[in-house]
Design a protein around this nucleic acid. Structure first.
Length: 425
RNA sequence: GGAGAGAUGGCCGAGUGGACGAAGGCGCUCCCCUGCUAAGGGAGUAUAGGGUUUAUCCCCUAUCGCGGGUUCGAAUCCCGCUCUCUCCGCCA
């Protein structure tokens, strides 16, 4: 959510900033809503004040044994007027809220302007990509090994699921544990396990609702519950309605969870293999920082995700997402893309974003300013560190040999004692 | 799943229709006193929204788990829900 004061005082400037994303801020509608809100709210609140003082006078008069009927008659008028006002104000406020929740974040000044993924800006590369020639894709490799079974998953559930077997299942577990260990032991994150089902308030807090509900799996239960699309949701919402002490900042959390995505708009995309699944494992990094520290933290957090790729010796590049490709809640996003030889290109494996106070305002995540003693909004950040399923894909493709066997990266040896290669049994 | 009890500020806890945004205590902050320590005295100490303002101040509104209702007036009465605790059952 954007700062309502900013919206009120500088609506044109906000509109110009959002236009960089290609978002059309309806200035006329906003100013109309705002004008109606202001007059209706002040009017309603003064009626409430009138009612409150009137009620107090009745109490006082009664205790003195005086006649209260003249005041009561007056209260009758206030009451009926107030009822109408409160109803109108409530309706207006929900309209206003819906409008504000639909506004995306203002992009940071350093974010390149652009319309689509083609306008993203590559800022660095690491490693030497192996040539595409002769490289099999991960699905062919995995199936040939007999360790990756899409048909079985289709029987159990449907398309966009997979069954991993044997050493591949074990490799995924090793990867997860490796990532968690690096982030907790080398990067200072606290490890969490969190619910994989969340309520609507949590999804609103991080920005998945109200606009992107189609991407979520909803549970058929009494409660309004959804499967998490990312650990970002439960982890960041730990901050919801909290006021942290400044000395406890930054908070750095890492959590491994499955992620569930309906992939509503992805029909026909990445239909083969494990790239785009309804369910995948991810290790997620989340930070909450002082506002003035968040960009520093953003670079740091991105580096933490990169560290995993480096240790696994997987070639990758880093992009700054352009205004048009960035998620609505983010002020700035770096994507990490890993080299996939079979596709002869880099594919997203991590997305690291600074949300500034956009999520914090939605979820009232605050800290107490040590000098002013007032509450201020935190800045929140997150990034994949990394998407485990896609990391598995990258290892298969980058560590394959001519015979279709997969070498195990050195750094995973402690997690897979004795296993040097995965090959057909 | 069944039965019962409960939810009040940072914490404990009082409050069953009117001067209650909420006693009292603890904690915390500032000041005073005290030659150190201990003790003592005073003041302050929720959040959000709005109005006003350069800002502070000030004013208004809302909030006693959440949502409705009754009433001139609700922490207090009524209805629904959520969560917590205890016992029983079941279960990893």
């Amino acid at each position: 959510m954007l700062d309502p004061k900013l919206l009120r005082t500088q609506p044109e400037a906000v509109a110009a900033q959002l236009a960089r994303r290609g978002f059309v801020f309806d200035l006329v509608r906003f100013q109309d809503l705002e004008a109606r809100r202001k007059s209706l709210q002040t009017e309603t609140e003064s009626l409430q004040a009138e009612r409150n003082t009137g009620s107090k006078r009745i109490g006082q008069a009664k205790s003195k044994g005086e006649d209260v009927s003249p005041i009561l008659a007056d209260m009758d008028r206030v009451k009926s007027q107030l009822a109408a006002n409160e109803q109108a104000l409530g309706a207006l406020q929900s309209e206003f809220e819906e409008f504000s929740l639909g506004l995306p974040n203002i992009p940071h000044a350093s974010v390149p302007e652009g319309r689509s993924e083609h306008d993203n800006v590559e800022i660095r590369r690491w490693g030497t990509p192996r040539p595409a020639a002769g490289a099999k894709d991960h699905a062919d490799l995995g199936e040939a090994l007999g360790l990756m079974d899409f048909a079985a998953a289709a029987k159990l559930t449907g398309a966009r699921f997979v069954v991993l077997r044997g050493q591949l299942a074990r490799l995924q577990r090793a990867l997860t544990q490796f990532m968690l260990d690096v982030h907790t032991q080398e990067h200072g994150y606290e490890e969490l396990y969190v619910p994989f089902i969340v309520n609507a308030a949590s999804l609103r807090g991080t920005g998945q609702l109200p606009k992107f509900g189609d991407d979520l799996f909803a549970l058929k239960s009494e409660q309004d519950w959804r499967l998490i699309p990312t650990a970002e949701v439960p982890v960041t919402n730990l901050l919801r309605d909290e006021i942290l002490a400044a000395e406890n900042l930054p908070r750095k959390w890492v959590a491994h969870t499955p992620c569930f995505r309906a992939e509503a708009g992805a029909a026909g995309k990445d239909t083969k293999g494990m790239i785009r699944q309804h369910q995948f494992e991810k290790v997620e990094l989340v930070q909450a920082t002082l506002p003035e520290k968040s960009y520093e933290a953003h670079e740091e957090l991105t580096g933490h995700a990169e560290a995993i790729l480096k240790k696994l010796e997987l070639p990758y590049r880093v992009l700054t997402l352009c205004t048009g490709d960035m998620g609505g809640s983010a002020a700035k996003t770096y994507d990490l893309e890993v080299w996939l030889p079979s596709q002869d290109r880099y594919r997203e494996i991590s997305s690291c974003s600074n949300f500034e106070d956009y999520q914090a305002r939605r979820m009232l995540a605050r800290y107490r300013h040590p000098e002013t003693k007032k509450t201020e909004l935190l800045h929140t950040l997150n990034g994949s560190g990394l998407a485990v399923g896609r990391t598995l894909v990258a290892i298969l493709e980058n560590y394959q040999d001519e015979g279709g066997a997969i070498a195990i990266p050195d750094v995973l040896q402690p997690y897979l004692p004795g296993l040097k290669r995965i090959e057909k049994a």
